[in-house]
């Protein structure tokens, strides 16, 4: 009987200590360091990714600008050659024209044809430039969206890294008692082990006392 009472008392005390320390530890753990580290790393990686994204978009935009320049050059060349062909084709009829009216009509048609080609070239240049501008606008939109995502992540990280009130409270309390949190965590583990052993001893005692 005496042995059983001792076991009961030890068990109750251990359970009480366990509860108090577990409560302290739970309150004082705050945000786990693994979570803080991952959060900080995520912000760092996202910042770095944003830099890579900006550099990548810059290269693509420079490539598009170069394509646009090359295309404009070719379009100018097409217009120039077309004007030359139109002129060459008009030379013979102008020379063969019987009167000024006929000559004027041929020259008028020549001017119209050259102008039509010129207009088509200008319109195509404008359309192409608009598409490249659209590409740049989309890049800008994507970067702004990513910056917003990053800002939100940074804000979450600010909160995660923040020392919470319960954490501060327990840190202050354990400071008053003169122990550190690691020791509390270790104590909780130790007590849990001791409780397990007491439980085994208690069961063994009950079995021994059983008739």
């Amino acid at each position: 009987m005496e042995k059983q009472g001792l076991v009961h008392a030890s068990r109750a005390k251990a359970a009480q200590s366990l509860s108090v320390l577990a409560l302290l530890c739970t309150l004082g753990c705050g945000t786990p360091m693994a979570v803080k580290h991952l959060s900080a790393e995520q912000v760092k990686v996202q910042n770095s990714y944003l830099g890579a994204l900006k550099a990548y978009f810059k290269v693509i935009e420079e490539f598009a600008d170069a394509q646009l320049k090359a295309s404009n050059f070719r379009l100018d060349d097409i217009a120039k050659k077309a004007a030359q062909d139109e002129t060459n084709e008009a030379l013979k009829p102008v020379a063969a024209a019987q009167d000024d009216a006929s000559r004027r009509k041929i020259l008028g048609d020549l001017a119209n044809n050259v102008q039509d080609t010129g207009t088509a070239v200008v319109e195509q240049k404008h359309t192409n430039a608009e598409l490249v501008a659209k590409l740049k606008a989309k890049h800008k939109e994507m970067l702004e969206a990513y910056q917003n995502i990053l800002d939100a992540q940074q804000k979450l990280d600010d909160y995660i890294q923040l020392e919470k009130a319960d954490e501060v409270l327990v840190n202050q309390l354990v400071g008053v008692v003169g122990v550190n949190k690691d020791r509390i965590t270790q104590s909780v583990t130790d007590i849990a082990n001791i409780e397990g052993q007491i439980e085994k001893a208690f069961k063994a005692g009950v079995v021994e006392q059983a008739p």
């Binding site: 295309s71 070719r74 097409i78 598409l131 659209k134 590409l135 989309k138 995502i149």
Partner: peptide
């Protein structure tokens, strides 16, 4: 001549697909 001009436009045609690319709303 017109076809050559149109061909210069075709180079940039894929960029028309950008309209269908939706950037997520982050507001």
């Amino acid at each position: 001549t017109r076809l050559k001009i149109a061909l210069e436009g075709a180079i940039f045609d894929p960029l028309r697909e950008l309209d269908s690319v939706q950037v997520p709303d982050t507001s």
